[in-house]
């Protein structure tokens, strides 16, 4: 039986490690955007590489967790939900890495007076992601508090939407080329998308939590 609980502890550890990856990815993403806007290319690239590594690590952990859950037929009632949650979470994790990569490849020229708004947008999106992680941890340990964290994610997601809208309004009222407007808007949309991914995770979490509390 000790071996049995050891296996459980091992997967629990892997889930926690995976969620730590997502938290770290959020922080690296925020820092990466900041470095990009401040023109610190070297620091930006360092963060981007770190984020790439984290994403690969996260992918490996996610596959390992799902394989073990199905191989050892653990949590038969909830593993479908857990699989869905982790897959959505992975989309969010990949979203952070891909967005930094887009910045690296396309080198968008962000207007200096919009820097603060881009930082705020990144901040709101990453906050949504962080609360998604807290909600997911709560799903595993403290089902009652899932709802509170889901509400926080919804708040940050709507904040991100507002900031992104604000950026677009400012951009499209500026006397600059349309291509530049569209390019910058496109990056606001990318950052905002992280909060949308986070919300998709919590949508699944909310349903899974209801199913578990029945």
């Amino acid at each position: 039986m000790a071996v049995f609980f050891k296996r459980t502890k091992e997967i629990e550890g892997e889930i926690d490690e995976y969620l730590d990856c997502v938290i770290q990815a959020g922080l690296l993403f925020k820092q990466g955007i900041k470095h990009y806007l401040e023109g610190q290319q070297e620091d930006f690239e360092r963060h981007m590489k770190q984020l790439d590594n984290l994403e690969s690590q996260g992918d490996k952990l996610q596959h390992d967790i799902i394989n073990k859950l199905y191989l050892h037929t653990l949590i038969p009632e909830a593993r479908g939900d857990v699989l869905g949650i982790l897959e959505c979470m992975d989309t969010a994790l990949n979203g952070t890495a891909e967005t930094l990569h887009e910045f690296y490849v396309e080198i968008p020229e962000i207007l200096p007076d919009l820097h603060k708004l881009y930082l705020d947008l990144a901040d709101a999106s990453v906050s949504a992601l962080e609360h998604t992680v807290t909600a997911t941890r709560a799903y595993f340990r403290d089902i009652k508090s899932v709802r509170d964290h889901v509400a926080k994610v919804a708040y940050y997601e709507s904040e991100a939407d507002k900031i992104a809208d604000h950026i677009k309004k400012i951009l499209f009222r500026k006397e600059i080329e349309l291509s530049r407007k569209i390019h910058q808007r496109y990056f606001a949309l990318h950052i905002e998308k992280i909060s949308d991914f986070a919300e998709q995770v919590t949508d699944r979490l909310a349903v899974a939590a209801i199913k578990r509390s029945e």
């Binding site: 049995f4 609980f5 459980t8 502890k9 997967i11 629990e12 889930i15 653990l74 949590i75 909830a78 857990v82 799903y139 595993f140 340990r141 578990r212």
Partner: peptide, 8 residues
């Protein structure tokens, strides 16, 4: 209790 521990 963690969901997995509860399962065990």
């Amino acid at each position: 209790i963690h969901l997995l521990e509860q399962d065990a």
